[in-house]
């Protein structure tokens, strides 16, 4: 069984939910602690939502320096699948594993709603389950989810197919070019602002669309093992 690690930083909030989602998808879940650089043999890592270190200084700016992040950054450069959700996305940007930055929502409010996304790229470890152009419904909830980058970077992202999901039927935070999720060039690192881990049970979520991210990575890992 593939092992998915879920990191807990001080102030992580959706860590238990990310672990539940991975478990429901059929992964073995390993909880990782911010101060422990050991990844305990996991095959993939989720950086969960929340307010790591109180979001002091800038969202994700302190978490980036956590001992566990140094190991994760190395592993990510080596091809390990890493998914950053919300605060996790912010941390990935601060750690320069992804380009650009997440800034305050344009309307200055925290916003929680059920949000439609259009999946634009299936060639990542975390989205191979989706069809390109498929629309999915998952919750968004953030105060600083407005993605920004310079024009050249944005054009490069577009050209390289690194924009993985865009907001449709309304942009909840003013994000540039409606960007909801981006990947690194290799496709193993994905940052997404909305919360797939909150759309994994019919009872508690607006849909089951979030499961696709976790089943994608399990397939990716299985394929990699088969190839090896």
């Amino acid at each position: 069984m593939s092992k998915i690690g879920v990191v807990t930083f001080p102030g992580s909030l959706d860590d238990g939910d990310a672990a539940r989602a991975a478990r429901i998808s059929g992964a073995e879940v390993v909880r990782l602690w911010h101060a422990d650089p050991d990844l305990h043999g996991v095959d993939a890592v989720v950086l969960p939502g929340g307010f790591s270190y109180g979001d002091y200084l800038r969202c994700g700016a302190i978490a980036r320096f956590a001992p566990v992040m140094e190991t994760i950054a190395d592993a990510a450069r080596g091809g390990m699948p890493v998914l950053g959700i919300c605060n996790g996305f912010q941390i990935l940007c601060e750690a320069h594993l992804l380009p650009g930055a997440l800034t305050r929502n344009q309307h200055l409010h925290f916003r929680n709603r059920d949000q439609w996304l259009r999946m634009e790229n299936s060639s990542t470890a975390w989205t191979n389950h989706f069809a390109e152009g498929q629309e999915i419904l998952i919750p968004v909830k953030n105060g600083e989810g407005c993605y920004v980058a310079d024009e050249r970077t944005l054009d490069e992202l577009e050209a390289n197919g690194q924009i993985v999901a865009r907001y449709v039927r309304g942009n909840p935070n003013g994000s540039t070019r409606d960007i909801a999720a981006i990947r690194n060039e290799a496709g193993n690192v994905l940052g997404i602002m909305p919360h797939p881990e909150h759309a994994v049970e019919a009872l508690t979520g607006p849909s089951l669309d979030g499961l696709g991210f976790f089943s994608s990575v399990l397939k990716h890992l299985a394929d990699a093992k088969a190839a090896a």
Partner: peptide, 22 residues
């Protein structure tokens, strides 16, 4: 109290998790 909206969002149906399956 202010629209607070950049591209106005369409109303998304379910505001809470109650779904067909159940």
């Amino acid at each position: 109290f202010g629209a607070g909206e950049s591209g106005a969002a369409e109303a998304v149906t379910a505001g809470s998790p109650a779904e067909t399956v159940l």
